[in-house]
C-alpha cells in the first residue's frame, strides 16, 4: 500500500477517482436528479453535507465501533445525517426538496458515501478523512453539474434557468426525462473513454496503470 499525502487524498476524489465518472458509484442520484443544474447542485450539496459529516464522525469514532457491526454503524451515521439534510432542505429549500423527492432519502444507500467510510475514514484520522470526503464530494458535484448542464442546455435550452437560445428553442424533451440521464452519462463516459484511450496510445507507458 502506497502512502499518500493529504493533498493527494483531496485531489484523488475530484478527478482520478471521481466517484461517478470513474468508480461508477452513486449513479442513482446522478441519473435521476440531474435534469437541471439547480437540482444537480441541491443534490450535490445534500450529499456533500452527508459525506463530510459522516466521514468526520466515523473517523473520530472508529475506535469505539466494533468490527462486526461497523457497516450497520456507518449506515446509522449516514442515515442520521441524511435525515437531517432532508429536514433542513424541506424547511429552507422546499421547492428543491419537492423536485428531488425521494432521492434525498436515498442518499443513505449511495454506495459512494458508504464506500468512503469503509475504504478510508475507518482507517485514517479525522483530518485526512475530511479532506478525502471534501474531495469526493467535489468530484460528485462536478459529475452531477456536468450532467445537469448538458441535460438542461439540450432539454430546456437554458443554463441555471438562464435562457441561452431564446424563446423559439425546441427542447429535447428526452433529455429531461430519465432516459436522458442514461444517454448523457453514456455520452460523458464515451468521451472520457475516448480521451483516455488516446492518451494511452500516445504515451504507451505501462506506468499508466495505477493512478
Amino acid at each position: 500500500m502506497r502512502k499518500t499525502t493529504p493533498s493527494q487524498d483531496f485531489i484523488r476524489g475530484i478527478w482520478n477517482e471521481n466517484p461517478v465518472l470513474i468508480q461508477m458509484l452513486g449513479l442513482c442520484p446522478a441519473l435521476a436528479v440531474t435534469n437541471s443544474v439547480k437540482n444537480a447542485l441541491a443534490m450535490s450539496a445534500a450529499t456533500f453535507f452527508v459525506i463530510c459529516c459522516s466521514s468526520v464522525l466515523v473517523s473520530s469514532c472508529k475506535r469505539f465501533i466494533p468490527n462486526e457491526v461497523r457497516i450497520s454503524a456507518y449506515i446509522l451515521v449516514i442515515a442520521t445525517f441524511v435525515t437531517l439534510a432532508d429536514m433542513l432542505l424541506q424547511a429552507y429549500a422546499p421547492v428543491q426538496h419537492k423536485e428531488l423527492g425521494a432521492f434525498i432519502a436515498l442518499i443513505v444507500v449511495n454506495c459512494m458515501i458508504l464506500g468512503r467510510q469503509e475504504a478510508f475514514s475507518a482507517k485514517n484520522n479525522v483530518y485526512r478523512s475530511l479532506l478525502d470526503a471534501i474531495g469526493t464530494g467535489i468530484g460528485f458535484t462536478i459529475a452531477l453539474v456536468m450532467m445537469g448542464g448538458f441535460r438542461e442546455i439540450l432539454g430546456t435550452g437554458s443554463f441555471l434557468e438562464y435562457s441561452l437560445f431564446g424563446a423559439n428553442f425546441e427542447p429535447w424533451v428526452i433529455m429531461v426525462l430519465p432516459a436522458g440521464g442514461f444517454l448523457t452519462l453514456g455520452f460523458i463516459l464515451l468521451a472520457m473513454g475516448f480521451v483516455e484511450q488516446r492518451k494511452k496510445t500516445k504515451t504507451t507507458l505501462t506506468a499508466e496503470q495505477s493512478p
Binding site: R2, T4, N67, N124
Partner: peptide
C-alpha cells in the same frame, strides 16, 4: 477495545479492488 484491528492505516485503497479483510480477530 479491539485496537489491534483498528490500527492507524495511512495507506490508501484502490477502490476498484475489493476491500481487503481486516487482520484476523484475536
Amino acid at each position: 477495545m479491539n485496537e489491534e484491528i483498528m490500527k492507524e492505516d495511512t495507506g490508501t485503497h484502490d477502490p476498484s479492488l475489493p476491500e481487503s479483510p481486516e487482520t484476523p480477530l484475536k
